[in-house]
Design a protein around this nucleic acid. Structure first.
Lengths: 361, 361
DNA sequence: TTGAAAGCGCTAACAG
DNA sequence: CTGTTAGCGCTTTCAA
């Protein structure tokens, strides 16, 4: 790359001051038409491209929003191996559940950024260390940052939130960390609507809840309202021990073993804390010749795309992922542009009755 | 947000110079242990977060790569309306084909950026004007830029490529624009493998090619090799008039009308230039009671997720989307870090024989 | 091992 | 309408 021309070069070539060059681009109306023409064409001839860093530094804002996530499907070896990149390598990846929850939320953010004239900077955590460094670098480059739960320590989060608006893409924890903004969904209504359906329509009485090993405010909330709602209905539930979500098949197999070993027999329904637990469970059950929903019903939570396409289609509670992303962006922009602090927001969910609960398509 | 502490504040608090603060962060080994401790803890207490803009400006690089795309599903009204964001609004979107080709490529870029320690800045074009502005802003903030075809004028592209490494995510055009880097796939082999299968295994003789209205080097390549390969086999093909890809149902209905109106009857197979034409065609055919592949076979190109889940599953040629994205990132980084110019690269494709061609699952 | 000082390229008062 | 000028916050020689 040849040395990049700057405002100085353009100014010299156009025979004006650098301020005029800047104005010609940023406040065209403040410059005489003919002057603007001169400047613009000088810029064109030189191949002038304004430096984002310099602009950002001078203005104190970058026009960029950030999002930091954890990519469950990421495979660091693929990246470092630098081996031949083939179609076969691609195919071997497990994209059964892609796009997942976070992908759809990020998509919502991208769309809203686009609509609002911002760019979106994405970064994601690594299995390895160095995440603190990564996220600080990211935070230093944006006007506002959205963060998925469980990817950043509270300390880090507080540090960053002190400098730029931050919104967590989850429910607030049980203990509200001082004023931290959140965009979340109404887990309570969702869980209650789901259980209401299972109890009233299907008459289920024996419930098993499949929880995730990775804890999060949302998961804890669902678990909590599951128990609460059942208790109110005078039903006792069994809460399965934590599920390892690291590796798909092993835990599902183990869990089915556990269910089968229960002398009391299978429960009426497996209520899973999220779709990515429900889907592999259905697969594993089918593999063992156990019919869903014939022998046992299964439900999820989130409403990822894969659940619509599974067999049977998954009954679940759908989060408005795109809206979550859009909402986060709006909050960040509002806060970044000074119109008030970011506030926590709770979006509605929707019960999606499909076939895995026993309803007919 | 309180005024952000800077190196100066940290330096003052730690009783050192700003150079030492910088060193403490960027070249820890060059600073005495005790000094580093002092600096770091001063920084922590102050809640110091380095400014990305300032770093970028001083270093001449940002550690960020960019990608500019066009989002076909984007709905600007949803963004500007700022109406209530509900689950229902989300559900009404047509995500049948999501994630599309570009989403998977971007995913590959994100993964590789992560692996290489870069962040990824995403921007996308608008139906409206102002794209030149958007992309220049984007380009000004990154060390390298990947661009999808048909979203940026050649002039813009040249301007940007003059300043930072740029790679186009498509085949080079027929007329190679001077040295512009590309990451693309072997459309010729893919199309030939597909036709070979259709001719040899299924004995098809009557082919119709469904082209896209939006032209691109890849689409033109596929169209070209389709005709060439058939000609070599002594088969004559009919190339359907351009298909409007703007709105799904209307053109598909019109196209089916056209096919039905042909006194010669249906062709043996509809070879579509990409999956997003093949899929709606299959839907429309089914709607009219025309069996695929019973009455007419259909094939696609790209290998998007939706094609695996359609009924029947779509026979297509799969591009290694993730690898394309990863490869683009590697090229950009190589070029940005000065180890040579970005070069064009052609990745292999793979014929995915599924059921829409008449093979049995 | 640390400090002084010169930029990096642009924006935005403030003058004129 | 245009020019002068002072930063924006950090990195990086070059000296000490």
């Amino acid at each position: 790359m040849a040395k990049a021309p700057t405002v100085y070069d353009v100014a010299a070539k156009a025979g004006v001051s650098i301020a005029t060059v800047s104005f010609a681009f940023r406040q065209p109306h403040r410059v005489k038409d003919s002057t603007r023409e001169t400047v613009l064409s000088a810029a064109r001839e030189l191949g002038y491209l304004p430096s984002g860093s310099a602009r950002g530094l001078a203005r104190g804002r970058t026009g960029v929003l950030g999002v930091f996530s954890f990519d469950y499907y990421a495979d660091d070896e693929a990246g470092s191996a630098a081996g031949p990149l083939t179609a076969a390598a691609d195919r071997n990846r497990d994209y059964r559940y892609y796009p997942v929850y976070g992908d759809e939320v990020q998509r919502g953010m991208a769309l809203q950024c686009r609509a609002r004239g911002y760019a979106l900077l994405t970064g994601s955590a690594t299995e390895m260390s160095g995440n603190a460094q990564r996220i600080q670098d990211l935070a230093g480059q944006v006007d506002g940052l959205a963060i998925f739960p469980n990817v950043v320590s509270d300390e880090q989060l507080r540090l960053i939130a002190q400098r730029i608006p931050v919104v967590e893409l989850s429910s607030p924890g049980e203990v509200r960390a001082g004023g931290q903004a959140h965009v979340s969904v109404d887990n309570e209504s969702g869980m209650r609507a789901l259980l209401d359906h299972l109890i009233r329509v299907h008459g289920f009485r024996r419930f098993t809840f499949l929880d995730a090993q990775t804890s999060s405010p949302d998961f804890r909330g669902r678990s909590h309202f599951f128990a609460e709602a059942l208790a109110e209905s005078g039903i006792d539930a069994e809460v399965a021990s934590h599920i390892v979500s690291d590796d798909a098949s092993p835990w599902a197999a183990a869990e089915v073993d556990r269910l089968l070993a229960d002398p009391a027999g299978l429960p009426d329904v497996l209520v899973c804390v999220h779709d990515e637990i429900a889907l592999p469970m259905m697969d594993e059950l089918e593999r063992r010749g156990i019919s869903v929903p014939g022998d046992v019903a299964v439900t999820g939570f989130d409403g990822i795309v894969a659940g619509r396409l599974s067999r049977p289609p998954l009954t679940t509670v759908r989060q408005p992922m795109e809206a979550i992303g859009r909402s986060a962006v709006d909050m960040l922009i509002r806060a970044a542009e000074g119109s008030g602090e970011a506030q926590t927001q709770v979006l509605p969910v929707e019960l999606m009755v499909r076939e895995s609960c026993g309803c007919s398509g």
